[in-house]
């Protein structure tokens, strides 16, 4: 089934005046096509200046997160048939826009760097693999599927009002290592996430869970981090 859709796209062109405007494009798409296909058609046939990120086009690389009809999603994973005929597209909120739908994600990635995002284990490794039971591996199963698309953190009201907050994505990364039985930097990492910009700032608003394209229950993971922090003597609500 082929149908016309109206793409209303928020443009940001840093060298033009005014810098910001809304453009409308009519695009013919079939019911297997995605918002990304629509954007590509517009760029190829109507306006070559339209700018957005893309790469894998099937929801694994995390390049094309944007706000589509009010919700952060991956353009490559959102089928047009599941949307109304008018599709409104904006860049991810609360990050500086570089051009059109491309935001500057530097701040987002910097959050990640703060939680020591790598396995730390200084013990000499065994000859073969470190043993980890399937049950233990399952503890991090959900958290390792994160593709760092930025949908969660930029949907978080706490992050909107305070850019110092680590945000759901970075906290999920902390979880991924804190609950990995092979990691030995528990204290160090808990210290990094229990300051005034860390886990205690999460108010369980669940926006992150609602938008995550990999359906990760991020809030649940943050709750588990809070429990672990309490257990290890890192108290909440204190400086």
């Amino acid at each position: 089934m082929i149908k016309y859709y109206t793409f209303k796209i928020k443009r940001y062109l840093p060298n033009e005046t005014p810098k910001t405007r809304w453009d409308e494009f009519r695009v013919k798409l079939n019911n297997m096509e995605r918002v990304l296909d629509g954007l590509i058609k517009i760029k190829e046939t109507m306006d070559g200046t339209l700018t957005f990120r893309k790469s894998c086009a099937h929801g694994v690389c995390g390049s094309c997160a944007m706000k589509i009809n009010g919700k952060n999603r991956l353009a490559c994973q959102t089928l047009v048939k599941d949307l109304p005929e008018i599709i409104e597209i904006e860049p991810l909120p609360s990050l500086p826009v570089i051009k059109d739908l491309v935001v500057d994600m530097t701040l987002f990635f910097q959050k990640n760097d703060k939680v020591l995002p790598y396995l730390i284990n200084e013990e000499p490794p065994p000859q073969r693999e470190r043993i980890q039971s399937p049950q233990d591996q399952h503890k991090i199963l959900e958290s390792i599927t994160c593709i760092m698309c930025g949908s969660c953190t930029t949907s978080c009201p706490v992050f909107w009002s305070d850019k110092e907050y680590l945000g759901p994505s970075a906290l999920l990364k902390a979880y991924r290592f804190l609950f990995d039985t092979r990691d030995k930097a528990t204290e160090q990492r808990l210290k990094a996430i229990t300051g005034q910009d860390g886990i205690w700032r999460c108010h369980s608003i669940f926006n992150c869970v609602e938008v995550c394209p990999k359906e990760i229950d991020i809030t649940k993971h943050i709750l588990k981090l809070k429990r672990l922090a309490i257990k290890k003597g890192f108290k909440g609500g204190q400086e």
Binding site: R128, E129, S133, Q137
Partner: peptide, 20 residues
């Protein structure tokens, strides 16, 4: 090489004995 990857933190799926 694979053992080294495991040591670097790759979260491989596991057998019941906990091996890769």
């Amino acid at each position: 090489t694979i053992i080294e990857l495991e040591h670097m933190g790759v979260p491989f799926s596991r057998t019941v004995e906990g091996k890769i």
